[in-house]
Structure formats: structure tokens, C-alpha cells
Design a protein around this nucleic acid. Sequence first.
DNA 1: TTGTATGCGTTATCAC
DNA 2: GTGATAACGCATACAA
Lengths: 338, 338
Amino acid sequence: MKRKITLKDIAKELDVSISTVSKALKNSNEIGFDTREKVQAFAKLYNYKPNNIAVSLQNSRTKHIALFIPEIVHDFFTTVLKGVEEVAHKNGYNVLVCVSNESFEKEVLSMEMFARGGIVDGFIISLSKETQLKEDYNHLIEIENQGMPLVMIDRITDKVISDKVIVDDMRGSYTAISHLINQGRKRIALITTEDYISVGSLRKKGYKKALADHDIELDERLILTINNIEDSDKAIEKFIRETTFDAVMGVNDVFAVVAMKALQNQGKKIPEDVAIIGFSDGKLLKYAAPTISAVNQHGDEMGKAAAQMLIDRLESDKEAENYKTTVITTTLIEREST
Amino acid sequence: MKRKITLKDIAKELDVSISTVSKALKNSNEIGFDTREKVQAFAKLYNYKPNNIAVSLQNSRTKHIALFIPEIVHDFFTTVLKGVEEVAHKNGYNVLVCVSNESFEKEVLSMEMFARGGIVDGFIISLSKETQLKEDYNHLIEIENQGMPLVMIDRITDKVISDKVIVDDMRGSYTAISHLINQGRKRIALITTEDYISVGSLRKKGYKKALADHDIELDERLILTINNIEDSDKAIEKFIRETTFDAVMGVNDVFAVVAMKALQNQGKKIPEDVAIIGFSDGKLLKYAAPTISAVNQHGDEMGKAAAQMLIDRLESDKEAENYKTTVITTTLIEREST
DNA sequence: TTGTATGCGTTATCAC
DNA sequence: GTGATAACGCATACAA
């Protein structure tokens, strides 16, 4: 194990003091030109890099940020990660990823360990399903009490005051449904998640508002609420067998694509018989046959925005407050299914 | 900013020395029972957690590992990340993710910074395309020279000696093609990447060997090499327009699904007219219509294996050597397209 | 212009 | 049993 070279090593080798080396490497003009040259040359030669740990201990900042996502195998969160990583690296920060797997416990334990251990400087989190169900946000509040910046993204809660990045879920949904209505669709179904999932509930609201604004009566039988993701496929198939409609929106990509398959199996033509729209920025809808229209959430933009907000907090010495909520605008991607 | 509580704080509060507190918290029986109780109670009350940075500085181990992936918006790497994260956390390690974006430069710079800065204890890496093209692996060799463990995964190189986790690409491809042949397919096309991508070239080998072993003459015109991922869609469509075959394998999920769509647009029935098979563990093939058969690479297993190998190296004090290559077996998932 | 001393929070060694 | 001290690698206030 080739030990890493330290200031001390350079100092000894060049027969100067450690602090001289330290200053020389910072090009401080406290140090004579010759010494500076000499030290810098030597450091370059031996490829000296300051030990991050020591620097961190010194100023108690790790230059690491944590990103908590509920589930990685989900195009949306993947793009969020990509966005976060990009902005973080650009600003000299590293990203620690924690996949909560929708588990409250993992979210809480990991968060506490990251926070109290001084492992990261701040957090970006998209809440786990379980957390949203329990409505227990003490771990987040605790983070803030410790003075650590926190940015919530996508799956958020109003119970915690912090910076937030969301998408205009309600509006996106509203626009999509309006689009379907304007195309002449009358009976529009919705496949959604249970209400405790913040985004699902907002999308349902947008759906309802669009219907109301266009004087279409709400028919609760056209709304399918998936409570168990495991057998969502079966639930959707059953729903489609038993319900008739001429358009359907899924609050994510899988719901939309599963619905389409079920409809096709029933001999329905897409989009002639039934129009379909989903939520996603991923490949699933883009490569479906026919391609499926989507409300694009711009996960990468959200990730970038969140990272930037967090870093701004970290770099500013103001005592925080005046928390902001950034709303990323969804865009409707029209494809063959509508 | 509520300062975090330290040993010193506890010591002062309880009027004992810092080292007493330190030992008491470790339940050392050097310390009297009463003092231990008292200290531990106090620590629990104030939720004391040792400062990781200080501990790291002490023993020069961060308990962080870096995962380098070329591209995150790719189901395979996503599942790898999931696997790595799971095993890492189980063993008390955190995962720093770096997305190289297929860029040699980003790979090298990030790697050096992680290594020389003492930010992580070890690396798991899947090489960027550019790195494989340049065949410049000095950064990896440098890592090893510094005595830091390195595990290469999936996109690897023989030029660097280290622990490796791969999938039996050649065999997976061989099995898939043989399967097609046994079904009576005669003209089997292959959509692949350029040879410098290690896995692409292996999959092509498996393809060729399967043909040879079944006495089918190789027709180079049935092989499409995608050199620019950007316009792969167009290249595939053109290929399909100009070439006739009764089966096709794509070396990833996108190639397979794009091929299917192009074929369907031509009025071909899947699988009656043309059988299709892809490489992937993601949703894209699973939710296609018809569902597409796949060589499952088990990204999560690979990730888990890689993380375990790395951690084993880190926790063992042996002077390394005897590097291992773990081969994860692919499995053929038969779906509707074959 | 350079060097000394101190501290960041721990752990470990050694003395009391 | 308990505590003082040094050390990890660096930065910085303060001497010289």
C-alpha cells in the first residue's frame, strides 16, 4: 500500500515547515517566490493532493450530499439521480445514493447515520411510500434542527418546511386530460395510486378539475386505485375487462403500458378506440407500440434544480429561512397513442 | 446550526476525561461499571454518534466505495447500482455514484480525485466507451498501485489485473442463438455495437459460434454494427428495410425493441415472421407488445457480487493478489417474441 | 519570509 | 479505574 504523500512528507523532504508548504501550495504571497516554486514543483512531481478527510475535519464540511430515492428501478428517479449528479460534480460535490426501497425504517436509519455521523453536508430526498403513509416526518425535522439543509423532491410533504422541487403534477394531469377531452374523448379513465402518495393525489385532482371544467360528470367507477404494486398488472387487466371508456391516463409509465397491452388483447385499437397517456420521461412509453403520449416530468431538470438549491444553501452563510419551492413545468409529449 | 455533540462535551458535562468517555462508550472493562452506565446513558440521551470524519482520519478508512457507471439511463446499470447499494449498506459502507457519461476524461478525473483525496476506500467500475476505445487504463493501474482495491464489472479489460465480475456474455448469446436455431430459424440477424465494447464483441462471438456449431454459414450482411448510438434508430430501420431474416438478436434492450417496431411497421408478424431476442433485465422488453424474450444479465446479482468482492478485499488484511473473476450466469427469459 | 502552536474529534498508548 | 498525551493531515493565528 503506497502511502499517500502528505504535507509533512514534502516539508521534510524540502526541509521547510509544514505550514510553509501549506501556504506555498495555496500560492500565498506570505511565502517567498522561490520557496513557492520549489514546493509547488515538488508537489506536482509527486502528485500531491490534500487529504479530504483532514480538510473535512478541519472545516466540518464533507462536500458530500446524500440523495434518497424510494426506488431506483424507475426511470423517473434514475433521471433525477443523473441531474443531481451532474450539478453536484460540477460544483465539486459528491453524491451518496441511498435507495430507501419505499421503507420508512431504512429512510430513517440511513438519514440519521448520514446526519449525525457528519457524513454529508445536506440532503435531497424523495419520500418513501411508507413514510408518506405513516406521516411521520420526525427524521426530516431533526435534520433541519441540526441545521442541515434539506431539499425535498417530487414526493414531498407539507408538514415539513424546507426547500422543495416539484413538478406541476396537477397542472400536468389537467393539461393531459383536457387534451383528451378536446380530442372528443368522453369517458376518460384514470389509473392511479392511493391518495397518500402526494403526486398521485395531485394528479387525480388535476383529472377531476379537467373533467369539471369541461362539464363532464365524474364517474368514480372510471378511477382505478392501485394499492398493491405487486399485482397491479392483474388489477389493471380486471379493470379494463369490466369497464368501458375511450381514453385512459396512468399516473406513471407502467400503468399506461400495462393498460395498453390489456386493451390490445381485448382487440381494441389504439388510439382509435381508446387513447392512452402516461407520466414518464423514460423509454418505456417512447418505445411502446404504438408509442404512448406522456406527461414529461423532466426528472433531470428536477434533479439539477434540487442539487443547485441545496448547494446554494450550503455555500451561503445566511441563516436560511425563506424556503423556496421550485416548480418544474411538465410538458405534454404527443405520440401515437392520442 | 445546532453543533453536534462530541466526546469532549460529554466529558466536560460528566466531569471525566475524554478518554474515559471514549472507552466507556466502547464498553471497555477498563472503565468502572458506574461510569460506563453514566456515560452511556448520557450519550444515548443526547443521541451521541461518533464523528465519522474524525474516525476516518484516525484509521484512514472512509467506509465509502465509489461506483462508476458509464450511463445511468440504462436499466442494466440501474440494477447494478441497486445491487451494489444493497450489499454496501448491509456491510456499513456507503456508495458514491459517478456517472462517467461514457467520457474518458470524467472517468479519469473523478477517479483520481476519489483516490488521491482519500474519499473512498475502493472502486467498482464499468468502463466508459471512450476508455475502451482508447485502451488507456493508466488511471486504473494507478489506483491499484496505490493499493486501493478495484473491481471491474461488465465492461472490463484484460489489460488490467484485478477482481472482476462479468456475465457469461458469449455463452448467453450462444444460448439465445442456439435457441432460435432449434426453433427452425435459418437467417438470424445481429444488431450489435462496435468491437471495442467488450461485451458487444463477446456477444458477437457467441453468435458466430452458435451459427458455426449448427452448420449455418455466417453471412456478414446479417450483422449490423451501430457506431453512433444517437441515430441507432434510423440505422436499424434502414437495416431492416434492406435485409431479410427470420430472427434477430439485439445486444441490448433498445436495439431489440426498435427492431421490433421497424419490423411491425413493415407488416411483419412477431414471432411468426421474425423472432426477436434482446439483452436486458429491465422493463422495456417485458412490457413490449408482444413481450420480447431476453438474455437476462442479472445486473443486481452482478452488483451484489462486485460489492461483496470489494468489501472482502477491504476487510481482509492479506496483501491481495490471486484476483478472482466472478462469472454470473445469464438466463434466457422466453417471452412471446420467440 | 518562515516557523510554531493549536485545534478539528477520535483512538490508542502509557502513566498514574 | 482513570486521565494525560500523541497522532491522524491540514489550516491558521500568531511569533519570530
